[in-house]
Simulated scan of single mutants.
Amino acid sequence: MNKKTIPILTTNIPQLKLCNRGKVRDIYEINDTLLIIATDRISAFDVVLPNGIPYKGKVLTGLSEFWFKYTSDIIENHLITTQIEKMNNDVIARQKDILQGRSMLVKKVAVIPVECIIRGYLAGSGWKEYQKTQSICGIKLPAGLKESDKLPEPIFTPSTKATTGHDENIPFSRVIDMVGKKLAEELKEKSMKIYLKASDYARDKGIIICDTKFEWGVTKDNKTILIDEALTPDSSRFWPQEGYEPGKPQHSYDKQFIRDYLESIYWDKKPPAPALPPDIIQKTSEKYLSAYNALTGKSLI
């Protein structure tokens, strides 16, 4: 692997205040803004794997920037810039070789503690819940649906934002209890509008957006805005339209490929995670890059 494809697994900028190192992102605080750096780390089953995926952080940042701009007519978002030279910070500028293409300078806001998930198709935990209850998050669905079927219409299935462990699916009534009816309705409406607009666009590019999650924040002047990332292979299930066939799992542009590999070697899903073989790393990188290329019409390499 040549130098330019060596994955970035972590960042260390001691001159800036590190406020969070998540599964994928390193977040630094700069006055009333945040510097969000998408590394090439990848997690599966809530465990960060020892190998990084080349270009993954750049795909996440590039796609988020693309979707933030594409959906800005629906809702404002937290993105200020992804261009290092526009961040007006000498410390960041000195790290340009590492940070370029994988960094977002964003507004710092109060985070709303709800994961806003929109499902257009029956997959993942939604499929498991449907098999048991014929519903998802209390929303009754028609009988006889198959795995990967398109739902009669997309549904809003929120979950809690867990700081540790798994998020928990919750009914909409719980969101109302948590944040109030007005804000809950706004989160549902805006999340649905973004999903529908993005789905129509992606379908024209040969990609099905099975489901996705959005995160939201509130500014100091009490305005709700879209935050975190948007419609990436880490926050969404992307399926190629070609070969789509309900009744089974679909080929995917996201990390389901890695989950399937880890299941095949019977890993117990407890840390430490096993190392990934080079061919699994390469194929996963190719999947992320191909999703970016298809959706933006641009190439990262």
Score class of each variant (00 low, 15 high):
232 T>C: 13
40 D>N: 00
9 L>A: 08
155 I>E: 09
95 Q>Y: 07
38 A>C: 10
58 K>T: 01
89 N>W: 11
216 W>A: 12
152 P>T: 08
81 T>P: 01
42 I>H: 04
83 Q>P: 01
255 K>G: 04
108 K>S: 06
145 L>H: 07
159 S>D: 04
154 P>L: 13
152 P>I: 11
23 K>M: 13
213 K>Y: 12
187 L>H: 05
279 D>K: 08
164 T>C: 06
144 G>V: 09
224 T>L: 15
269 K>P: 02
112 I>G: 01
128 K>Y: 08
154 P>D: 09
293 N>V: 02
123 A>R: 06
20 N>V: 07
196 L>K: 15
152 P>A: 08
258 I>D: 01
60 L>N: 03
208 I>W: 15
221 D>G: 00
97 D>Q: 14
16 L>G: 07
82 T>A: 14
55 Y>I: 12
40 D>W: 07
6 I>E: 10
8 I>M: 11
15 Q>Y: 00
135 S>G: 11
4 K>T: 13
147 E>C: 14
136 I>D: 03
120 G>D: 06
109 V>D: 02
244 Y>T: 03
143 A>E: 11
118 I>W: 08
281 I>K: 08
38 A>G: 00
106 V>N: 04
189 E>F: 00
87 M>R: 01
35 L>D: 00
115 E>W: 13
86 K>R: 10
88 N>S: 10
107 K>Q: 09
57 G>T: 05
136 I>T: 04
283 K>M: 12
130 Y>E: 10
219 T>R: 05
276 L>M: 03
75 I>K: 01
299 S>E: 06
212 T>A: 09
109 V>C: 10
170 I>S: 05
207 I>G: 10
125 S>F: 08
233 P>V: 09
19 C>N: 13
213 K>C: 14
